[in-house]
Design a protein around this nucleic acid. Structure first.
Lengths: 195, 195
DNA sequence: AATTGAACAAATAATTCAATAGTTCATTTT
DNA sequence: AAAATGAACTATTGAATTATTTGTTCAATT
C-alpha cells in the first residue's frame, strides 16, 4: 500500500469522524485509531489537525465537483448542460450524507464572501463550470450577451444561497421546489426570446 | 412633548449608539445619557435592553420598507414597479449609514431561514411587495404563470443574498454590478416572450 | 405622570488551575 | 531508508472562583 493510498484511507476515516462529531469533538487520536495507527504515526502523513480537516473537506468537495463535471460532459446542448449541472449537483449531495453533515456542522465552508472562502480555488473551479456554459450559450447565440463574469458570480451566489437554505438551514421541502422554480426562471432569463 | 415623541427620541439615540458600538458594547446608561435622562427613567419608556434594540431596528426597517412602498406606488407599469422596488431599496440603504452599520454588526437580522427570523413580520411585509407585483404581472398576462408563493420566496431569498453580499460582506463594487445583472436576468425570466 | 438614586440581581470579565489534546522527537521496527 | 512507536513537551480547553460591570426594580421625590 503506497503512501497516497494510506492518505486516502486517512481522508476517509477523517471524513467519517468529522462528519459525525465535528472538528472540535474529533481528536487526532480518534482518527489514528480509525485507520489503525498511533496518533504520532498519523503525523507522518499529515502536518496538523487543521490541515487534515481542510484536506479532508477539500478532497470531498472535489469529488462532488468531478461528479458534476462528468455529468455535464455527457451533454452537448447548452441548456441541457445547465439543467444537468443544477440537478446533478443537488442529487450528489442528497446521496452523500457525510459531506452534507460536514456542510451543516461547518457553515463557513459556504460563504457568500470570496474573501473569507477557505475553499476558494475549489469554488473557482465550480464557477468555471458556470462560466463555460455561459460562454457556450452566448457563442451559440442562444443566450443573451450578458456580462459573463458578473453573471457567473451572480449565478454562483444564487447557487450558494440555495445550498445554505437547503442544507445549512434545513428547509428541505420548500427549498427544493424553489430550486426548480429558480432553474426555470434563470434559464428563461438567459435564453434569447427571438428564437 | 408626548410620550410617543420621547420614545422616538429614544429610538434615534439608540440607533445612533447601537450603530456605532453594537448591542453588547452599548449600555443602557449610554442610551439614557444620549437622550439626557437617567437610566432608571429610561425604564419608564422601555421594558428592557433587548426589546429596546429590537424596537429600534424594527422601526428602522419599517421606515426603509415604507420608502420602497411609496416609490412603488408612483408607478403603474408592473415591470417599472419591479425595477423601482429593486433600485429604491438599494438606494435607501446607501443613504442610511446607521441602518447599514446595524446590518453589518448584526448579521442575524437578515437570515436565509424564516424560522430564525427575528423580524419575520417585517420581512413578510417586504415579501408582500414582491408577491403583489408577481400577481399583477401574471394577471396582466405579462409574466409567466409561475408558482407565486415559491417564486416570491425565491426572489426574496435572492434579494437577501444580495444584501448579505453587498453590506454584510462588503464587496460593494462587484455586488452592485451583479445587482443590475440580477434585476435584468430576473425580469427577462419573468416576462413572457410572446409579447 | 415623570424622574431619581439606591439597592439588588444578572451577566460579563479576569484569573487560576487541572485535565485534555495537539505536536515533536529520539529511538525502534520493518 | 521509510514507517511506526512511546514518552516528553506544549498549547488549549473547561471548570471553578472571584471581581466588576451592567441591567433591572422600586420606594421616594418632583
Amino acid at each position: 500500500m503506497t503512501k497516497t493510498d494510506k492518505q486516502q484511507d486517512i481522508f476517509n476515516a477523517a471524513l467519517k469522524l468529522f462528519a459525525r462529531y465535528g472538528f472540535k469533538k474529533t481528536t487526532v487520536e480518534d482518527v489514528a485509531a480509525e485507520v489503525g495507527m498511533t496518533k504520532s504515526n498519523l503525523y507522518f502523513y499529515v502536518t496538523n489537525k487543521r490541515e487534515l480537516y481542510e484536506h479532508t473537506v477539500g478532497n470531498s468537495l472535489r469529488q462532488w465537483r468531478n461528479s458534476v463535471v462528468s455529468a455535464i460532459s455527457k451533454k452537448d446542448d447548452v441548456v441541457e448542460k445547465f439543467a444537468v449541472m443544477a440537478s446533478k449537483s443537488f442529487e450528489y449531495l442528497s446521496n452523500h450524507e457525510e459531506l452534507r453533515s460536514i456542510l451543516i456542522m461547518d457553515p463557513g465552508i459556504f460563504t457568500l464572501s470570496p474573501a473569507e472562502d477557505r475553499f476558494y480555488e475549489i469554488n473557482q473551479g465550480a464557477m468555471m463550470l458556470i462560466k463555460n456554459i455561459l460562454i457556450q450559450g452566448i457563442e451559440e447565440g442562444r443566450f443573451y450577451e450578458v456580462d459573463i463574469d458578473h453573471m457567473t458570480e451572480l449565478l454562483f451566489s444564487i447557487y450558494i444561497m440555495f445550498l445554505i437554505k437547503t442544507y445549512i438551514k434545513s428547509e428541505g421541502s420548500s427549498a427544493s421546489r424553489m430550486y426548480e422554480e429558480g432553474v426555470t426562471l434563470i434559464l428563461r432569463g438567459l435564453c434569447r426570446k427571438d428564437l
